[in-house]
Simulated assay, not measured.
Amino acid sequence: MSKRIMNTKELSAYLGINEKKIYTLITEKKLPATKVTGKWIFLKDMVDDWLERSSGEKPYIKESKDVLMITGSDDILFNRLITIMRKQFPEIFPFFCKTGSLKGLFVLKDGKAHMAGSHLLDEESKEYNLPFIDSYLKEYHIVTVNFAKREQGILIKKGNPKKIKSFEDIARNDIRCINRQKGSGTRKLLDVFIKKFGISSKSIDGYNKEVTTHLEVGLNVLNNEVDFGLGIKAAAKMLDIDFIPLVKERFDIIIFKELFFSQQVQKFLGILRSPQFKKIAKGLRGYDTRDSGKIIYDS
């Protein structure tokens, strides 16, 4: 078929399935479609791409023997793991783009990375990452591996001069806050907490002031530019500032199943399971590596 744009009947003939099945795929948001003047239309290029990705015969991003493209959430221990990999396997270059957890899933879906780090908390189920994989990566074959559990909480000045005791203090008139970028798991966590306590984001001084890493949050606290910011315990220890724990969250690595047994991915996961990795995690503080390397989900 040479037509670039198809209607439902034409697509039915092209795919060899009945029109009812096509409507089902649209409803399940599996099939790329656009509605124009009340009728569904389909771009052939997008349909062909969807077929290729849904076949399970090859990953959306091509395997590379010397490059490992990583995206997703910022983490201090994760950075250390990448440094170890570069030293142990100089023939492989791991490239890490810190986009934030949610945006990382979209980067993965767009075929621009082999794996993504994520710690997204679903408000309803209280489950990490899996509901978001089901929502945004449902048409892919995915393996989710635990990276570590980590303590996330409030970073404050050493000695706690503002006498901050709980998350609710974020709304005090004398408290200056800093936030993480939209799409990050830490930003999502902050929004979960302000909803839980019935706090309006408009009442928070600094809600729209954004940075992209835990260390940036900590440095703003250390330099007395802000009083309050969410971050991980490891950042507080590195900067010698105080920390009020809020949650112990699960940080996972999301990988295309077709790439899971590739040489570079297995070398990466091998470090994750190593005594060296666990020793570094223990020294950084705030990490639980008992399940590191464990498969959490296999679609």
Rank of each mutant, 00 (worst) to 15 (best):
K182F: 03
R187E: 00
D169W: 11
K103F: 04
L121G: 02
T99R: 00
E127I: 15
G185M: 11
V107I: 14
H141Y: 14
H119K: 06
L102R: 07
T83S: 05
L81W: 06
F95N: 04
D174G: 10
P161Q: 12
F147L: 15
L190W: 06
K162Q: 08
S118I: 15
K126E: 13
F96H: 05
R172A: 10
V143T: 15
A171R: 10
T186R: 06
T71I: 09
S184W: 04
M69F: 02
V67T: 02
N79L: 13
N146S: 09
S135I: 11
G100R: 02
A171I: 08
L77Q: 05
D110E: 12
A116Y: 01
S125P: 08
S101V: 08
V107N: 05
L190H: 04
F147R: 04
S125A: 11
F89H: 04
I142V: 15
F78K: 01
L77I: 10
K149D: 13
F93G: 00
D110S: 09
K157I: 14
R176V: 13
K158P: 03
L137A: 07
R176L: 02
E91F: 12
A116H: 00
N179S: 15
F147S: 12
K109Y: 04
L105R: 05
I175S: 00
S101K: 06
K112V: 05
G104W: 04
A113S: 08
N160R: 08
L155N: 02
V143R: 06
H114S: 10
L130I: 15
S101Y: 05
I175Q: 02
Y128F: 15
G72A: 06
D169Q: 10
R172D: 02
L68Q: 01
Y136S: 10
